[in-house]
């Protein structure tokens, strides 16, 4: 076996470049970026894999010379649109990091209400410029999405590793139930809790159900999710349509399904 510290890097003999990575945040809690700092044991290896040129949660300042931009947050202000366009122009690869960037996230809940009312309610006498919360893909081309609120550190590391070595990025097609059962959980519906696990894309390792909290669909719909049956199950178990819509709407991943429901059912 050749020396493991040998440089330059390669993977199976295919040359690997250590990419320059920048983290950015638009309207968000920066919780996804914080996730990346959890578990220091893999942090050093991650920092060896990529060169981080900008990461507000962990370093001050930052360069504008990057190839991969991991952008957290939704777009809610016009200056953010401009910033996003500049990032897009610079980045070879623009990654939407987390539910806000992918779908609008919790922020997009405000889109349900009149903007003036939202401004008054949130900022009172000191209103600021704010627009409906939108996902990045409403403004620029997004090359890759990393789902979750927050993202799962292990998944981000896996995806970034695959990006670096040039392997295709794959997500689970199946819903959260698959991981939930593998973890030995009793179904939350059995405990009387609603859960969107049956229609939500897995990859989180059933993070919430593991703690006996029903899924809120932060990762968006699984491939070919059977929403009609999900609704029937909620009805049958006595959860009102409004409860279900609230849940589906929480992170924005089910926006088109909710719109169809509202159109069909006359819900607000």
């Amino acid at each position: 076996m050749p020396d493991s510290s040998s440089t330059p890097k390669n993977y199976l003999g295919v040359p690997v470049k250590r990419p320059k990575v920048a983290f950015f945040e638009l309207s968000s809690c920066e919780g996804c970026q914080l996730q990346m700092l959890n578990n220091e044991s893999s942090l050093l290896a991650f920092l060896d894999l990529v060169e981080i040129v900008r990461f507000r949660e962990a370093m001050s300042g930052g360069g504008d010379d990057y190839e991969i931009a991991l952008v957290e947050g939704s777009v809610t202000r016009s200056d953010e649109v401009e910033r996003l366009k500049i990032i897009r122009a610079q980045a070879r690869l623009l990654v939407a990091l987390g539910s806000c960037a992918c779908f609008g996230g919790v922020n997009q809940l405000k889109n349900r209400f009149p903007l003036d009312w939202v401004k008054r309610e949130v900022y009172g006498e000191h209103p600021i410029d704010t627009a409906p919360a939108r996902p990045l893909s409403d403004f620029v081309a997004v090359d890759l999405k990393i789902y979750g609120c927050p993202v799962k550190k292990e998944e981000v590391e896996r995806i970034v590793t695959d990006l670096v070595i040039g392997k295709d990025i794959a997500y689970p097609d199946y819903p959260v139930c698959m991981e939930c059962k593998a973890n030995g959980n009793l179904c939350l519906f059995e405990l009387g809790e609603p859960c969107l696990g049956p229609v939500t894309r897995a990859g989180c390792d059933a993070w919430c159900p593991n703690s006996r909290a029903g899924c809120w669909g932060c990762r968006g719909p699984a491939t070919d999710a059977n929403l009609a049956q999900m609704l029937a199950i909620m009805d049958e178990r006595g959860f009102s349509r409004e409860t279900v819509i609230d849940r589906l709407e929480c992170f924005g991943g089910f926006a088109s399904q909710v719109a169809a429901l509202r159109a069909a059912g006359g819900h607000r």
């Binding site: 819903p175 139930c177 698959m178 179904c187 070919d224 059977n226 009609a228 049956q229 999900m230 029937a232």
Partner: peptide, 13 residues
């Protein structure tokens, strides 16, 4: 099939 959630629970249990 119309009812099936394709969730894999039946196989896992």
């Amino acid at each position: 099939g119309a009812r099936c959630l394709s969730c894999g629970t039946c196989a896992n249990v």
